[in-house]
Amino acid sequence: MNVLATVPGWVALTIGALVLAGALLVCIGSVGLLRLDSFYRRVHAPTLGTTLGMYLVLVGTIVFFWAGEGRPALHVILIGVCVTVTTPISLMLLARAALERDRREGAAGIPAANPPETGADGGE
């Protein structure tokens, strides 16, 4: 059964385009997770999926339930708000944990516990 046939054609196409664009961004984020070569670089990759990628899929979902069932599934917004507020927290905690672990092991290219005034370079 094709549920998308219950909404007008151009609306269905809009939903498809929104969700596809979002999924593409999420997928690119995962490619980065796999491809980038150090933890501090990889930590940037999933933010693609948790920001614009997720927003596009969420907007597509809201439009679908609005057009298809006549009621706006507005609690989808709550998913967006929750993820937007919580992802920075978990990523920050992770980055701090990684920094602590690297400092303890004396890894190269990691700023010291009291960074100098000019700032230190890491990575390449």
Partner: peptide, 23 residues
């Protein structure tokens, strides 16, 4: 058009699964 849209959703599901695989 609805077939096209369904195909787009299917493609997005494939992309998301691919992303999960890479993760």
């Amino acid at each position: 058009t609805s077939d096209l849209a369904t195909a787009a959703i299917l493609a997005s599901q494939f992309l998301l699964l691919l992303g999960m695989g890479m993760a």
